Computed example of a mutant assay.
Amino acid sequence: MERRSFTSLSAVALVLAISGCTTTTGSKTDPASKRREIDAGVDSSLNKLYASARGSNELAAKAQGILVFPNVIAAGLVVGAEYGEGALRVAGQTVGYYSTTTGSFGLQIGAQSKAVIVMFMTKTSLDKFRNSKGWTAGVDGSVALVKVGTNGNVDTSTATGEIIGFVVTNAGLMANATLEGTKVSKLDL
């Protein structure tokens, strides 16, 4: 019982630390400033993707919508959690703001930051996402993570499907990543 309590308390503390929650009362971030900050991060993340994976710009041009989380923070000590905020773009325009959360359990320690980019390649997949009250990768839509070949080009065999995704770190595209179980919720900004 004590071990389960410790694990539960650890998970709660980790999520609070990642999401930046505080117990102090102060001024809230101005929603317009928060939107500008997220949009700037989205622009930066897309530019980094286009520079590091040849062919990703062409995929983006074909996408019906692109969901970008420019700064997903992952941290863990046995219990892990991830949190980030981002925007959905349709035809190059931001149409909504979202948060992403993921939890995990297992051997892990440390923290890292990454960008998560999800491209809805069909109108049906985009509409299903936009009409959901809460969307979970692997449950509400299967996301095929795209790999980049040794030549730096997008591997077209992994760039198929209605929804495709990229995970980008400072070192470039992340190998062996998964988005399964990632929960996406609409932000009220």
Score class of each variant (00 low, 15 high):
177 A>L: 07
91 A>M: 04
146 V>K: 00
160 T>V: 13
155 D>I: 10
128 K>W: 01
102 T>I: 07
99 S>V: 01
29 T>Y: 03
102 T>R: 12
46 L>C: 07
7 T>E: 10
123 K>F: 06
119 M>A: 11
176 N>G: 14
115 A>M: 01
22 T>P: 02
171 A>R: 11
52 S>H: 10
129 F>Q: 00
97 Y>V: 07
114 K>I: 15
170 N>R: 11
136 T>K: 14
182 T>R: 10
6 F>Y: 15
98 Y>I: 01
189 L>V: 06
136 T>I: 14
65 G>K: 06
178 T>E: 08
76 G>A: 13
34 K>F: 11
153 N>Y: 11
101 T>Q: 13
62 K>R: 11
149 G>L: 13
144 A>V: 10
140 D>V: 02
119 M>R: 09
129 F>H: 00
167 V>A: 12
168 V>C: 09
130 R>M: 01
9 L>Y: 12
158 T>A: 08
2 E>H: 10
13 A>T: 04
71 N>P: 07
182 T>C: 12
4 R>L: 12
177 A>M: 09
48 K>D: 14
170 N>W: 05
123 K>R: 12
117 I>L: 10
66 I>E: 02
131 N>L: 04
91 A>I: 00
164 I>N: 00
142 S>T: 14
69 F>S: 05
50 Y>A: 08
63 A>Y: 04
28 K>R: 14
16 L>P: 08
138 G>H: 04
177 A>C: 09
69 F>V: 05
104 S>Y: 04
91 A>H: 13
75 A>I: 04
39 D>T: 12
170 N>S: 14
168 V>M: 15
162 E>Y: 07
23 T>M: 15
120 F>Q: 04
100 T>N: 04
128 K>N: 15
102 T>M: 12
34 K>Y: 10
126 L>K: 03
37 E>P: 01
189 L>D: 01
132 S>A: 05
131 N>Y: 00
81 A>M: 03
174 M>T: 08
114 K>H: 10
120 F>A: 00
14 L>F: 04
139 V>S: 11
167 V>Y: 08
